[in-house]
Simulated assay, not measured.
Amino acid sequence: MRYVPVLVSVSLFSALALNAAPVSAADPAPEIKRDAAVPAQPVGEVRTLRQIPEACARLEGAFTGQAAQPYKFAVVRTSPNCQPRARFVDAAKAQPSVAGGWLFNDLIRVSNAACTQQQAVVRIWRKPAAIAPPTLDAQGKSRLYLQEEKEKAAASKLAAVPMFAASMTVEGKACGG
């Protein structure tokens, strides 16, 4: 499986403290409640962690068995024909937080089958946007006109779009030599 460049914040694994504490107590309760992935993920097996249809994206990852980069994580486009209704943004740049209007959407924990004390932890944030459908014209149709939309874009008056951001860390003790 080919990995596309990761569009989200993935810290340099060499800088990760693999003895990090478990999921931060500072994390708010996620919107989606789930258990850790069962069964544990074997090294080299690529798994889809979550699909986000409105962003035409899926999150996938695999344990590598390498100490320098124990987990490869990627955001992959689901289909070239998919028309996204939300954007996936880089978590490092977006700095998602409750104070910034983001909602803590999901917390995904994946255990390493070859090293049970190690797990990949993915945090997904969602920033909703109040989107109103276009007003109806005299014929009862909602229409967008290219020139009007270009003018709005030039004036930076386009409607907000929902956004998603994800960050991944590897937690627990390093295994192997």
Results as ranks from 00 to 15, higher is better:
Lys72His: 06
Leu49Phe: 02
Ile124Tyr: 00
Glu171Gly: 04
Gly44His: 07
Val23Asn: 12
Ala29His: 13
Val98Thr: 13
Val98Ile: 11
Ala36Asn: 14
Ser111Thr: 09
Pro53Gln: 04
Pro84Asn: 01
Val46Arg: 08
Cys175Arg: 11
Phe63Met: 06
Ala67Met: 12
Ala113Ser: 09
Ile124Glu: 00
Trp102Ile: 02
Ser24Gly: 15
Ala120Glu: 01
Gly140Glu: 04
Thr48Asp: 03
Arg58Ile: 14
Val121Leu: 01
Leu146Tyr: 13
Ala154Leu: 13
Lys33Trp: 02
Tyr145Lys: 02
Glu54Met: 11
Ser79Arg: 08
Ala62Met: 09
Ala129Tyr: 09
Arg126Tyr: 08
Gly172Trp: 12
Ala21Thr: 01
Pro30Gly: 04
Arg126Trp: 14
Glu45Lys: 06
Leu144Tyr: 10
Thr135Gln: 10
Ala15Gly: 11
Gln41Tyr: 10
Glu148Thr: 11
Gly44Phe: 09
Arg123Pro: 01
Gln118Leu: 15
Leu107Ala: 10
Thr48Pro: 02
Ser24Asp: 15
Tyr145Gly: 01
Pro134Ser: 15
Gly101Gln: 13
Asn19Ala: 05
Leu144Ser: 09
Cys115Gln: 15
Ala159Thr: 11
Leu146Trp: 11
Glu148Leu: 05
Gly61Tyr: 03
Val38Gly: 05
Ser9Ile: 02
Pro70Thr: 14
Ile124Cys: 00
Ser167Cys: 02
Ala174Leu: 06
Ala165Arg: 00
Ala99Lys: 10
